[in-house]
Design a protein around this nucleic acid. Structure first.
Lengths: 151, 151
DNA sequence: TGATGAATATCAAACCCTTGATATGGTCGC
DNA sequence: GCGACCATATCAAGGGTTTGATATTCATCA
């Protein structure tokens, strides 16, 4: 390490989290690709399946991205006929978004393969280990929030 | 859940990992921003500090991105005078990359704040918990690799 | 020597994401 | 009712990432 670097790289848990997530993204990418989807598109369709008629902004919150980022994803999904957007009958500023049949089909295709990855993760651990990992990650998230607040 | 969705969303550990990592990225982004850097730029400078004269391709491997992605990051860093690239004296196809003084300064500024986030994470856990989290994440990564191989 | 193969670098296209700014429509307090 | 406020949507600019294709250079081996 360099002088002035305050913490050895090996002690930075953030590195482990990032590496694991990059591995996960890579696998998910591979999984949903044959359905003609990207990972963000898959995530959006997945959230949409559970919340038909949701607004773009709400969808963005669900997927933890900015509304602008979600707009781009929805634009691509709409151009390919996987979703439909129609103005809300009362609240005229809102665009209600729904899956089309093609969208549902693509989602099911993608999910079938994405689940393979999720099952592989689940199968690696015992019930207790899964709970432990979840708990540690949740505490991690809280700690990160506290750390960010110090900036 | 919808019929046909093979696994409840709440059981997908990938979701927890992704959420934690997004939180981490957001905090890191906030941390390095005041140094005028993005997170990938910070990561590249960090790796460069430990490996002066490394090639772009090797740097890409270290940061777990494609060489093309690293090329973009290096282009931006070079335009802002934070790194220098010079042809390797013997192996003429290689561009050796090194930090400039400005680059080292920016890195130290950014790292000072990034470490705040890392320290907040470390402080949340006991020594044993940190080891457990690392071990579970490592097994997770292996399981993901096995899952991806089934695709 | 000369061909093959591996590593490096780069161009191009498509997509995703962020910040910042702006316009529009609805809600609530006065 | 009217204005302040909030949520939604969108435009614009700057980065980052991937896949795919191509060129260059070096090392290896027949």
């Amino acid at each position: 390490m360099l002088p002035g670097m305050g913490m050895p790289a090996g002690e930075r848990l953030g590195m482990d989290i990032k590496r694991t997530e990059q591995s996960l993204m890579s696998a998910k990418h591979l999984a949903v690709r044959s359905a003609g989807l990207t990972v963000p598109q898959y995530a959006a369709l997945f959230a949409l399946a559970d919340n038909p008629g949701i607004s773009g902004a709400a969808l963005a919150r669900t997927c933890l991205v900015t509304p602008q980022a979600m707009t781009v994803v929805l634009k691509n999904l709409e151009e390919r006929g996987l979703i439909e957007r129609s103005p809300h009958p009362w609240h005229r500023n809102i665009l209600e978004t729904r899956l089309t049949e093609a969208g549902r089909t693509a989602l099911e295709l993608a999910d079938e393969r994405a689940v393979v990855v999720e099952r592989a993760i689940a199968a690696e651990f015992t019930e207790g280990e899964r709970a432990t990992l979840r708990e540690l990650l949740a505490r991690c998230e809280q700690a990160i929030g506290r750390g960010a607040a110090q900036l």
